[in-house]
């Protein structure tokens, strides 16, 4: 019976012709837009998560402490501190030389080491937000040894806001296109209903169960949706294969993530499910509107 119903649905799709193709194209566009924004947003999300882990607050000290362990102990006791590392003046100079690379010899001409000793503080997860980081900076600045405290999580939050904005735009554009896709599937199904009115009449006359009359309509909508979702997935995959290798060096440099990730198998399944659902909804709406 299921084979028959699927066969009828396929026959209906052929009947709908260009309208069915339009519906499939619209579903493809809506899911490709939704998926595209989703991809950008999820990669930005990865960057945000990574940078949150990397937030450091640096406390520059007035002078090199004679007993760094005592200072470290007091800093560790401050709420919001997950870890702390002491960087002596000599270590700071060594790090500077490393950064300068072949120009490191410039440092040798300095009369004395101008760099201060410092404490590199890793905030706990709760303190890695703009407010948490500001509070922590205030507490660290109150240390008698502290000369200056640098660091905040503001820019990470700005990145996070961009990520949320992109996700919202993606949802908005995707939703508008999805509504258009549903309406097109509804139109295609309405045409199919008209084209199959003789079959429907015969089916009712011979006492066919309602499921046999209605399911092909729902199925052809779902098939349109699934076809659109498969095409959208292929388009996204092709776009990713083309764009990712070119963008990755830039992304690595600006966002600090080594590569751009594509959807997981679960993500692709979600996309296919969403397409099938959109198409099914269109088919169901037409059926609900036109069936006597």
């Amino acid at each position: 019976m299921l084979g028959f119903l699927v066969g009828e649905a396929l026959r209906d799709l052929r009947r709908a012709g260009r309208v069915a193709i339009s519906a499939i194209v619209l579903i493809t566009l809506s899911l490709a837009a939704l998926g595209g924004f989703w991809l950008v947003s999820s990669n930005l999300g990865r960057a945000v998560a990574q940078w949150r882990d990397r937030v450091r607050i640096v406390v520059y000290l007035k002078r090199e402490p004679s007993a760094p362990e005592a200072v470290l102990g007091r800093v560790r006791a401050i709420p919001g501190v997950s870890g702390v590392t002491y960087i002596a003046k000599a270590d700071a100079l060594r790090a500077l030389k490393q950064v300068l690379g072949k120009d490191a010899s410039v440092v040798d001409h300095l009369p004395a080491n101008p760099l201060p000793a410092s404490l590199e503080v890793t905030p706990s997860a709760t303190a890695a937000t703009p407010e948490g980081a500001r509070d922590l900076v205030g507490r660290l600045a109150a240390l008698p040894e502290a000369d200056e405290v640098a660091g905040s999580a503001d820019w990470i939050e700005r990145l996070s806001q961009w990520q949320r904005l992109l996700a919202t735009i993606g949802l908005g554009v995707g939703a508008v296109l999805a509504v258009a896709a549903i309406l097109t599937v509804t139109t295609a199904t309405t045409l199919i209903l008209h084209a199959r009115r003789h079959e429907t009449e015969i089916m009712r006359l011979v006492g066919a169960p309602e499921s046999a009359i209605r399911l092909p309509l729902l199925l052809q909508g779902m098939m349109q949706g699934l076809a659109g979702a498969v095409l959208a997935s292929i388009a996204l995959m092709a776009g990713y294969s083309l764009v990712a290798p070119r963008l990755e060096p830039l992304v690595n440099l600006t966002l600090g993530i080594p590569d751009l990730e594509f959807f997981s198998p679960f993500g692709i399944l979600t996309l296919l499910g969403a397409g099938t659902l959109l198409g099914g909804l269109g088919g169901w709406l037409a059926r609900a509107r036109r069936e006597p």
């Binding site: 003789h198 015969i202 006359l205 011979v206 006492g207 169960p209 309602e210």
Partner: peptide
């Protein structure tokens, strides 16, 4: 539907698909 499964119906126009 149950009733109609026990009835055959023929019309003036054959109503063939």
């Amino acid at each position: 539907a149950t009733l109609r499964r026990s009835i055959g119906i023929v019309f003036q126009d054959a109503k063939l698909l």
